[in-house]
Write a protein that binds this DNA or RNA. Structure first.
Lengths: 200, 200
DNA sequence: CTAAACATACCAACCAGTATGAATGTTTTG
DNA sequence: CAAAACATTCATACTGGTTGGTATGTTTAG
């Protein structure tokens, strides 16, 4: 029985499994055994890398969720001159991808936020930081759009960014429950109409 | 020690306590003991009225949440000729009321929906029925507005109603986490701007 | 007297966390 | 260079507390 230590690998395996299980089951509903099973790691290893379930949860927010927002929203948006068009395109891509998978799991950030923000101040603070990152990123993109003339000058970038994020979360939440393509199309239509109203 | 039986009263006490505790803590996080303590009912009585925790949860959705949507949204909206103005007024009233209480608990429907819709199909179906009730109610009000000339004829009532509900849930969810008045004002501004665009 | 309405004590399952030890890497030292 | 000393990384068995649910008995009402 030969064993080789690779602590960073097991740490990442734990984070990944924890993220997925928390996404699908919720933080409190998921048991450490679930995470250990999914990651093929033992309890001793888990408690070597993370002091508690809470610490693991915090790390998921700080490391996984944070990266997710950057990779899925902020970085793609940076490649567009017109942030409104960028948003519409990113969303369209996502809808295509969602149709393929069974993914009615909702937004991981929204899920965790709704569950934990009133129960654990540490979670709330960390999740809020992600929201700030997200909103500020969108606001910066809108400002950029105002400078290059693709976004109305009268728009308040930060306020619009806040409403955009809240809409995205609201839509994903409603779809998660209804599982209805019609509702999805309806929400998208309303949302796109709002986005169009921001164009210069 | 004189005792008097009033089964309907204890049933309602259980429903009320369950609703509040589920709202504040979440369905899985709340223990039956919490509900029993809050309602001052014993476990024997609970299991006399409800076959299981699940049955109690279902009843909360069917009876309490359903009534809540009617009383807080649909009935008030029926008193307005202009449904857009009606929505804006109802929301403004709510915001005032929210400032007084500490209420950062979010929307009870949204909370439960995010937590349970992927774990328990019975919950999902029941919660979806509430969403349908809500959206259809809004859609009917918009149609009414179209007939009396307060809402643009080009608006698709059902699609707009879907987006409005998703926005309300999204905003309440974001505020629940950020607890920021600025974010609240920003989202409200964006939302009201959308509502105005529906006016004839 | 019967059935509904409640009260109390208990139980099996689960779960986060711990105690303990073994296997592997790294550093120090003779 | 070797080997001992030490630290890191992981594995297993166990525990105390909680929870949904049940068994059983008691009280009230018709």
């Amino acid at each position: 029985m030969v064993r080789t230590y690779s602590p960073e690998k097991t740490r990442q395996a734990l984070l990944k499994a924890a993220f997925e299980q928390i996404w699908k089951q919720g933080y409190e509903a998921v048991s450490l055994d679930d995470i250990l099973k999914a990651s093929e790691v033992t309890k001793g290893a888990l408690y070597h890398h993370f002091g508690s379930k809470q610490a693991l949860g915090y790390a998921v927010v700080d490391e996984v969720l944070c990266a997710e927002v950057r990779e899925r929203w902020l970085e793609p948006l940076d490649t567009f001159d017109n942030p409104i068009e960028g948003l519409i395109q990113i969303l369209s891509e996502m809808r295509k991808a969602c149709h393929e998978k069974e993914s009615y799991c909702g937004c991981p950030l929204n899920n965790l936020s709704q569950e934990m923000s009133n129960k654990d101040e540490g979670f709330r603070e960390r999740l809020q930081a992600i929201y700030v990152l997200w909103i500020d990123g969108f606001a910066a993109a809108l400002k950029r759009g105002q400078k290059n003339g693709t976004v109305k000058a009268s728009v308040n970038p930060w306020a619009a960014a806040s409403f955009i994020v809240s809409s995205l979360e609201g839509i994903s939440g409603l779809i998660k429950n209804t599982r209805s393509v019609e509702v999805q199309e309806a929400c998208a239509a309303g949302f796109f109409a709002y986005l169009e109203s921001l164009k210069a």
